[in-house]
């Protein structure tokens, strides 16, 4: 039973990290163009010279 005192806070903490990551992704507009991002990965245009903007 003592393990619970570790496990529960740890699981809540990890879940919280996931939640914060989701918020960050949301705020940095990563859900803006899911279809475009899926296609962009196929293009090798900026492989050697990352786009400046």
């Amino acid at each position: 039973m003592e393990t619970l005192t570790f496990l529960i806070p740890i699981s809540l903490f990890l879940g919280g990290v996931g939640l914060v990551a989701f918020f960050w992704a949301l705020r940095s507009r990563q859900f803006e163009d899911p279809k475009g991002d899926a296609e962009r990965i196929l293009s090798d245009e900026f492989d050697d010279h990352p786009r400046q903007d």
């Binding site: 507009r29 859900f31 163009d33 899911p34």
Partner: peptide, 20 residues
């Protein structure tokens, strides 16, 4: 949800670029 996000356009981002 992913499927839906790609299925139609994402409104959450509609004004996002312009805001930025």
């Amino acid at each position: 949800m992913d499927e839906h996000v790609s299925a139609s356009a994402c409104p959450a981002c509609l004004a996002a670029p312009s805001a930025e």
